[in-house]
Nucleic acid binder design. Structure first.
Lengths: 126, 126
DNA sequence: GAACATCTACGAATATCTTCGTAAACAAAT
DNA sequence: ATTTGTTTACGAAGATATTCGTAGATGTTC
């Protein structure tokens, strides 16, 4: 059972729901409007479609429905990463990692966190 | 001067051109056909559109035109990474890096390579 | 309960992406 | 020079994604 691939707009909405947790259309729309120009019914329609696709769940017990992401953030991340590594990074996860590290300010703490993670991976692979 | 965002199909073609270097439509199509079902004119049309968008250059001096990527692989990688970090990883490049490392087999050499890279970053930030 | 605001449902218009058929240009082979 | 094969150009159909207007339901306020 493979997850329907979210479109660009759908990803934005998923991102908001992952961050905020279950939310109304209004709340999602408000958040969305901070960075994007769009009518309320546009957001509504999108979320309804996502519900039909199985990307969202919803609680319709009260008049104002409450939506939540039906797909996990990490599974979605993995799906997109795989695709990206494959098409844009010539299959090399290492390349992706270095590119990502190179152009984003990372604190020393974060770098340490990554080092620790590297060690664990090495341990497990033995 | 921001680069037009490549679509899914366009990325596949760019990927091939980055790997092979300048190529004819026929060559790209052949490569594409290994993984995908598509008619020749479909590939042709796509590449023509990409040329118009400025994603490809072409040498039309001989009858069989020769296309090349007009956008660099690393710039495109960065563009897509940024977007992805923003929408899917809640803004954290570190999260992306760890997710990428966790689910892809990496050789010890690659892990070392990443460690070396981490040190360099730390040096530079001082 | 009338006026007003907010919500969902629906359908359709618009935009964008993808696919491919057909025709014309050109080159090579017979 | 006719046939055969390969190429580009063009247009249009088909598929998918995005946007929004309108109507009806529900709730809120006066």
């Amino acid at each position: 059972m493979k997850q329907h691939k979210p479109t660009e707009s759908e990803l934005e909405i998923l991102g908001i729901l992952w961050e905020r947790g279950a939310s109304t259309v209004r709340e999602v729309h408000e958040k969305l409007a901070e960075t994007k120009e769009a009518g309320y019914t546009t957001t509504l329609k999108l979320m309804q479609i996502m519900y039909e696709k199985g990307l969202l769940t919803r609680d319709a017990s009260s008049k104002t429905h409450i939506y939540a992401a039906a797909v996990s953030q990490s599974a979605t991340q993995q799906q997109l990463l795989n695709k990206m590594i494959d098409t844009v990074f010539g299959g090399s996860a290492t390349q992706l990692v270095m590119q990502a590290l190179g152009h984003h300010k990372s604190s020393d703490e974060e770098l340490d966190q990554i080092r620790k993670y590297l060690s664990e991976i090495e341990k497990q692979q033995r």
